[in-house]
């Protein structure tokens, strides 16, 4: 049962990502990507990692996609005038994806309503996850966080206010 669900979710995720890449409207693309992330979160849950599933939703859906939307809207990348829609056909893929994610979630819930048994897979709780992250893989975590820090400093350098240079441009 779990493996069937896993493959269905994998297909849903791939389809959603494909639709995201081919979609012309950036806001619609973000919505497809969000659906893909939901499917991915469910897959992580099926693999016995509820913590990662939660973080998938919090970090990717709740923060990074929100940032994407923010940038799309601030830069007005999305077409302001909608073309006259051909009707419901355009919504079939989105609705199908949403419905399949919904059905998979319901199936997981019905299989194990109280989440008492964690299935055949190894179940990773928050404690084990934290120990692995800050014990076994501490070096990797540190390296990645340094990378992020460099990126943040670089972004600040590129985006800082430069009054002097602007004056020079005005003069020339």
């Amino acid at each position: 049962m779990a493996s069937i669900l896993f493959y269905i979710l994998g297909f849903v995720m791939l389809a959603a990502t494909l639709l995201c890449v081919t979609c012309r409207n950036p806001v619609h693309a973000v919505i497809y990507l969000v659906k893909g992330f939901f499917a991915l979160a469910l897959m992580f849950y099926l693999l016995g990692a509820p913590l990662i599933a939660a973080w998938e939703v919090i970090v990717y859906v709740g923060a990074i996609m929100v940032l994407f939307l923010f940038i799309i809207m601030v830069l007005e990348l999305a077409p302001r005038e909608q073309p006259q829609e051909p009707g419901w056909q355009r919504w079939v893929p989105g609705l199908l994806l949403a419905a399949s994610i919904m059905i998979c979630t319901l199936l997981i819930i019905f299989q194990d309503p109280s989440a008492a048994s964690h299935g055949p897979n190894h179940f990773v709780g928050p404690r084990e996850f934290g120990e692995a992250l800050f014990g076994k893989y501490a070096l990797a975590v540190e390296v990645v966080s340094f990378q992020l820090l460099f990126a943040a400093v670089g972004a600040y350098y590129l985006g800082r206010y430069q009054p002097r240079r602007r004056n020079e441009e005005d003069q020339t």
Partner: peptide, 29 residues
């Protein structure tokens, strides 16, 4: 449902709440 990651669930859902607002605001044209 007493999730063992209930707090994370709350954080995730509360950050999802903005989608309705944003999509509604954008779709209004």
């Amino acid at each position: 449902c007493d999730l063992n990651i209930g707090l994370l669930y709350f954080l995730g859902i509360s950050s999802l709440g903005v989608y309705g607002v944003v999509i509604g605001g954008w779709a209004s044209n």
